[in-house]
Amino acid sequence: MTTVAKSTLLELWEQMLLIRHFETETERAYKAALIGGYCHLSSGQEAATVGTMHALGSDDLLITGYRCHGFALARGVAPEAVMAELFGRAGGCAHGRGGSMHLLDVERGYYGGWGIVAGQLPLATGLALALVRQGRQQCVLCELGDGAINMGAWHESLNLAAVWRLPVVFLVMNNAYGMGTSVERASAVTDLHRRAAAYDIPSLRVDGDDLLAVVEASSSLLSGARSERVPAVLELVTYRYRGHSVADPGFAYRSAEEIEEHMHRDPIQRVRALLVEEGLADAELEGVEHAAQERVAAAVEWARADPPPAVSELARGMYAPGSAAQFARMLAGAPFGERELVFAGGLGQ
């Protein structure tokens, strides 16, 4: 069993608390209409998120689906930049263009939250292929939900990763439901990691709410990908406390008792118990929890104060710098408003 130093364990617990409080505040802000669009919370999945991010090297690359607030935070993106993105503000990590589902931080090797189920898997193989071509001994962690494994992109990506020996680990966050459809109703094989056998690549299925087990399993598979170019599947069995998105109360397809039962095995409480075993005092732990709350409150305040993106930059980033000249001859007969909104809005500048 992996052991992590007490100080490390405490840091990881802090991250878990940060994510939990961040998600709680996010839901509150959503209900106050400060956040719009789709918004998928990850409360209950903190051990799986923080454990894998701890195992992922700082030079390694990360790509995820849309339930990505926790991954961004655990990867070290400032809570201010994440919250501002949810608020649709200029200081958000995607400058208010992406929102909840499309967080990223290229400097931290995080190539985005993606919103089409399984769409990020082919991208992950491409990132891994580029690492190989560039002779970099790093790997890619590709997060996906249990629903994504029924998409064709799953099959094509795992096959390509195996055929080309790509350094990528596919992390299946099995939280029991793809939206409102249980794994049992969606997948012929409910031990999802067994699907990896079809591609003859290693796989593990681990209690995703056990932080140390997550660190151990992900370290092992990521290390194989990094140093031996062995792609792998890591299935983390976890549970989301909230609905699929904030619009889903989460009770149509599961019982209150079921949710309650999982909350009794809460991953944050499990790590807290370890810290108590390690001799940390309640007062100290309460202080850490209070600090996480404060951190999130500060992020909310920062996001509130951050200005929205200017309409004069509507087309920002859509095309690479220099593209404006290519589009210069496209204005004649253009649709109403195109000149003011798109051409004056930073197209290719």
Partner: peptide, 18 residues
Amino acid sequence: PISEEGFVGAGVGAAMIG
């Protein structure tokens, strides 16, 4: 392989890091 979604996406991913 005959995997258009897979290898077009791999092209996209590879392009994202240069």
